[in-house]
Amino acid sequence: MLKSDEDSDDEVYFANMPDFGDHVDNAIFSQILEMDESDHERDFSEPLVINFFEQAQDTFEKMDQALASRDLNELSTLGHFLKGSSATLGFNKIRDSCQVVQQYGHKLTVDGVSEPDENVCLKKIAEALQAAKVDTAELEKQMKKFFGAE
């Protein structure tokens, strides 16, 4: 693709894209939509997004287990993992929750200050996990609508 096409493409995608609110970083997500061959057959982005939600579901289950067994390390790893995918897709809310999980899994606050109390960490993680689940469910609905509508 020629570079010069791109700016105008961006405009178009920004205009065409539904508003996912603060769930999604439009700039990042539109770059992914841009990779589709056509606006009507989103054969790249759609499976990607669907796959992400499967992956998220899977990760949440693992997080639940790790939470039950108070495995902070595992929680941190899982948090990091899902953070990477969600960030790459521009799913900011989920990303932020994952960041919280990752940080407290390392016994650190979000600002990187040490938090030695495991119970506090687990509590924060549980909250963030809950928030991530809610956000994911909400976003999944929106995404399905977006892809379904096209």
């Binding site: 990779m35 796959n51 990477g84 995918s85 790459t88 897709l89």
Partner: peptide
Amino acid sequence: EDDKTCARIGSKFLTN
């Protein structure tokens, strides 16, 4: 890249 999502997006960008 171990994360499938990132790998797919990255590959796509690069192929593109």
